[in-house]
Design a protein around this nucleic acid. Structure first.
Lengths: 232, 232
DNA sequence: GCCACTCTGTTCGATAACGCACATACAAGG
DNA sequence: CCTTGTATGTGCGTTATCGAACAGAGTGGC
């Protein structure tokens, strides 16, 4: 892994690739926190209190559209950060940030982040680069939502969950996935059923296991590869 | 308007709100260019040669998905710039930038922009703020593509065209709109027909006129207002 | 062992959009 | 005038998804 020897718990790529000097200055203000499924890191339209650098947890970014449940438009894992608007000089986001499972992240208050951001050119470079990747992800998601069928989108979503989750099993109910994908729960049930019959996944009462990763890739839309490759 | 007296042709908001001193330093490297419908300002995955600050022209950002025509995921008008990846330290975009009509923009080479960007804190602030608004637009588009019917999305798209176009009539064929919205040409024909029967618009062979702006707003999805309000 | 709850599976008709094919209509040029 | 090309309109059967309602099935508490 990329993490420096003196901080074994830092799996976040943005932090891990900082020069040691820059990292140590930030270190004093970074807290290791544990996030739980369903935790709202910030709400759309409200001031961002903290930024988060996920280690082994997935955070989703959701848009709120009237008459619909929140729709997922982006996913942040250990290669990103939650709270990018602060890096752009904005103190709130139009999106809600929601933890997708249990795991750890490095947390920093907004003001400490802003100071650290000013003082570290390396951090700025990393974060701006990540913002670019996130924009690519938002654009790809827009296209994916338009063109691809539920089954392919579900496969993509499960692959992304698996990439960031600590284990190959994770907790996601059909109901919850339906909200993320912006479809009915029944739509997810059907798609998940189809994937299970192809022996790609297995699930029961919210516990999903990936059986055949490459098969699932074949069932997913090309957006999976595109988004993955955008992060470099 | 916001444009300084000494540069009557500068209608672009980002440039117009710069302090005079900062603007004058940039001025030497800014060219007034005329864009024509269909002109590609940069291609996805190829180095960005110039940035553009639109005056009275609309530029759309398109994602390329295999098996489909390019889908519009964002629109840049006089309140934005084309070439934001350069501000994030990236020299190419995953998106294609396409001029949506004839009009003028201020153009700058990539390297001059990067230098000007380093030297002007005001420009940086403006551009980062715009990047935030653009991200909000991408996210909203993703949701809009998922939830809203063609007629509402068409209405929104026409309103946005009208907001940035010099006149209330503009040239957009059904075929072209279909590609932007990611639907069949027939879908646009039907939706446009419906809007025309409600006396909201009028069109013939690509020339579209808006007859009832507020009526069209009512027919459009709420995304129109949301995206507009995000730009401040 | 029973109850309440959550999660998953199934069915129904309705609808929006699809792909394809063809018909009309208008404009420009020889 | 006639041809060619572009733009728009229409009809057809098909598919993905919707909304709503209900039927099992596993899990945990009492």
């Amino acid at each position: 892994m990329l993490m420096p020897a003196h901080t074994p718990q830092i799996a976040n790529h943005l932090l891990a690739t900082l020069p040691r000097k820059d990292y140590q200055r930030l270190h004093a203000h970074l807290d290791l926190v544990t996030l739980t499924l369903g935790e709202v890191l910030y709400e759309a339209g409200e001031p961002i209190q903290h930024v988060y650098f996920p280690n082994d947890v997935l955070v989703s970014l959701l848009t709120l559209v009237e008459g619909h449940l929140a729709l997922e438009v982006g996913l942040v894992g250990r290669d990103g950060m939650v709270g990018t608007p602060l890096a752009l000089g904005i103190d709130e986001s139009p999106l809600r940030a929601l933890a997708q499972g249990s795991g750890t992240a490095m947390r920093m208050t907004a003001s400490h982040f802003q100071k650290g951001f000013r003082d570290s050119p390396s951090l700025r470079r990393e974060v701006y680069c990540y913002i670019h990747a996130l924009m690519a992800q938002l654009a790809q998601t827009a296209a994916c939502n338009r063109f691809h069928v539920v089954e392919a989108r579900l496969a993509r979503r499960l692959l992304m969950a698996a990439d960031y989750a600590p284990s190959h099993t994770f907790h996601l109910t059909h109901e919850f996935l339906a909200s993320m994908l912006g479809v009915r729960r029944v739509g997810v049930t059907k798609a998940a059923h189809a994937l299970q019959q192809q022996n790609l996944i297995n699930y029961s009462r919210g516990e999903i296991t990936i059986l055949d990763r490459s098969g699932l890739k074949a069932a997913a839309c090309s957006c999976y590869k595109i988004i993955k490759n955008a992060k470099h």
